[in-house]
Design a protein around this nucleic acid. Structure first.
Lengths: 275, 275
DNA sequence: ATCTATTTGTACGTATGTATT
DNA sequence: AAATACATACGTACAAATAGA
């Protein structure tokens, strides 16, 4: 307990009175600043804990908390062992989507909200793929489709097919040359997938939906091969409209069933109680 | 050092050999699970550190690191003092955008990437406002415009005007009834704002750009008041096209200037070296 | 308004786990 | 197989913030 009273006092009063930034955040900011200053690149390693401790004059726990925070944000990844440490890491799309999901957890978008965007973006995405797909890509897409070209026999198969249908769209997003467009579309699909309404819909077998999706996707592939931009956009747009229409109907149906079962809750806004 | 050897040994071997999850992450997951299980609401407080320590049988620092991670993700916010602790918090849009920015830090979208989305979404956003704006909203928008209705006299004023121009779009996003659409548009604007190219462009006075923006925005407000959907969409779309066109030209110009100054780097992909 | 109690925030020392060489 | 270099975990002590008496 020799050097307990080092600097901790004049730290926050030095700037202005309401400098709320805790030491942890302060260090976090400094590390970030360090990264941009020194133009650190993707795989670069930043100093090890001990050095950071020395550099900032903070304790181990404080530094670790700062690093943990950055790790949670996907900025760095930490490895143990010799030559380990904190490395600048490329944020994973999946991770980013998880974080974004938190934003929309408490103000959940409606089906219509999601499709308002999808109707604009999915056609654009599909069109942007024209002329960019090689044989390999086409094969990948066709393989996905083949998973549900036949009606499912078991319930498990049914569900697998649903996932494959989504995979088709996800594959398209992956191939998109515009990273922004690909990400947003992917995120919208993800959002949809996690809606409890969707889960309910997906659980019960639905030959009509499967038929629809299949039909659209086969036609889409054809149009893509022919590099027919207008058709591609139109097919995808119609697909989106049909999907939206279908989901809205399902939602209404589920709501009616719910009301029948429990008429007391008729006044509540049941549609927002998803997830 | 009495109870140092409590449980730490059989922890990870109990499940399977490659249980990589660090204790911190494990606790983080458990806390998240707890939140959904008990259907915790927005302002709810989760147990305080001491209780979590007892519940998980972990040390203080470990629990704190887990909490810090969740705080960095915007899931909780932590307050000190009596009745303090970790509270379920609504994630701020600004925070979410910061996190998302990290994703696009290393695979930066181009001007065209950004405008490909904006051209589709901004008209949609503007149209979605029709019939939803009250006098107050209109006043807010007009006030923003009034900030740059006259040419700037000083350089500082010039920059302020640029920010006000962006504010106009941000205000529109805020008013959008579709949270997804509003967020994405807002994010795109943000992305644009942080492009170093943009910063360069914005720094030098530019009467033509100002004139353009002003022109479009005045017309847009009129069309919004008249609830003329087609006009609204068209005006915004043209605005986007003009903006994109302008920025691409600026980019090319800056690149040429750069090459003149430093012809050696002619081979490199200078346009991607933004930020 | 000051004090007090409660709860988070920071510091530090030590021991243990883990991956590289 | 052992040494090494690093993160991970634990525990205690004290500092700072804040709600409530």
């Amino acid at each position: 307990m020799s050097k307990t009273s080092t600097i901790p006092l004049d730290r926050k009063r030095s700037r202005s009175t309401r400098k709320r930034s805790k030491r942890t955040d302060e260090i976090c900011d400094k590390i970030k600043a360090r990264i941009v200053e020194r133009k650190m690149q993707l795989g670069d390693r930043l100093p090890q804990e001990a050095d950071l401790i020395a550099e900032f004059g903070a304790s181990r726990s404080t530094v670790r908390e700062a690093l943990k925070g950055m790790e949670a944000q996907g900025l760095i990844s930490i490895k143990t062992g010799p030559a380990g440490g904190a490395f600048i890491s490329k944020m994973e799309e999946t991770h980013a989507m998880e974080l974004l999901s938190n934003l929309f957890f408490f103000k959940q978008p409606t089906i219509n909200d999601i499709y308002q965007l999808r109707k604009k973006l999915e056609p654009e995405l599909a069109a942007s793929l024209i002329g960019k797909l090689d044989d390999n890509d086409f094969k990948r897409l066709e393989d996905t489709i083949s998973l549900y070209i036949l009606p499912a026999s078991t319930k498990g198969e049914e569900y697998q097919q649903r996932l494959a249908e989504l995979d088709f769209h996800i594959t398209l997003s992956d191939l998109c040359p515009n990273p922004l467009l690909g990400f947003v579309c992917n995120f919208l699909q993800n959002l949809l997938k996690n809606l409890s309404l969707c889960k309910q819909i997906y659980e019960k077998p639905n030959p009509v939906l499967r038929e629809h999706a299949l039909h659209y996707q086969v036609r889409l592939l054809q149009a893509l091969k022919l590099q027919d931009k207008e058709s591609v956009e139109e097919i995808m747009y119609n697909h989106m409209c049909a999907a939206q229409d279908y989901m809205i109907k399902c939602e209404a149906k589920l709501k009616r069933e719910f009301l029948k079962l429990d008429p007391a809750s008729g006044q509540g806004d049941a549609s927002n109680k998803i997830q």
